[in-house]
Amino acid sequence: MTKHRSAIEDAPNQKAPDASVADAYREYIPLLYTLADDELVAGHRASEWLGLAPSVEEDIAFASLAQDEIGHARFYYELLHHLGEPTPDHLVYRRQATHWRNSRLLERARGDFAEAVVRQWMYDTWDAVRLEVLIQCPFPALADGVRKMQREEYYHLIHMDAWLARLSSGGEAKDRLVRAVEAVFAEAADLSVLPQELSSSVSGSLNWEQAELVFHQRIEQALHRYGLGNARWSLPGPSGRSGDHSASLTELLGTLQEVSSTEEGVRW
């Protein structure tokens, strides 16, 4: 009964955002845009499965996963705002496609369920590796949020892994899975690409090359485990990290921004 009393600490008096402190981390802005936009776009696509997934439990699973991803996006957008960027609502509802920095893989229009599973698995695998790197970064506000996200993302990855195990058992499911792996690999090249605008001091501190190797290794091991063939990493092509997107992102933003674009300052 007394546990909570001792757990409540004294709030420090001075914790107001200090402009000079915020300035020190502005170098992270290009990286934060890739993180935020990845999560928002992945969350939006996941939410499209509500009502269409193979079972009612899966409707809920994808909706819940979408809610988590969009919550993570919001954390990153708020951090961006704290560093002097526009408000989260502005960033989501007012930006044109060329200003988005998400991976092209995530904007891909909804295919069949196998593709949704493979894409989410590929992304969650990369995200897990990326969070392992970011938790060590010298930007405390980012590292704190990442620590929180890691615990939530754990559930996404084991859920997708369970689907891979189930669908890879054979028959039509396996055929669709193999096709989905091919389709996803064709778009996954920019997933681990860092934005060009990122300063060398930040990119140098992140050890991204090793993260990419670990990511590839985890994907290859799983493909082998589920009998899905070898990895087909494609060569770098157009990159969402530099704002080069497919028509799918324009379509997605058309839906996402439809209401907000009806008139200035609209509330819903």
Binding site: K3, H4, A7, I8, E9, D10, A11, P12, N13
Partner: peptide, 13 residues
């Protein structure tokens, strides 16, 4: 909220 353990800190000045 106390039993949920979400209250991290309180300060009154």
């Amino acid at each position: 909220l106390a039993d949920l353990g979400v209250v991290h800190a309180v300060d009154v000045t």
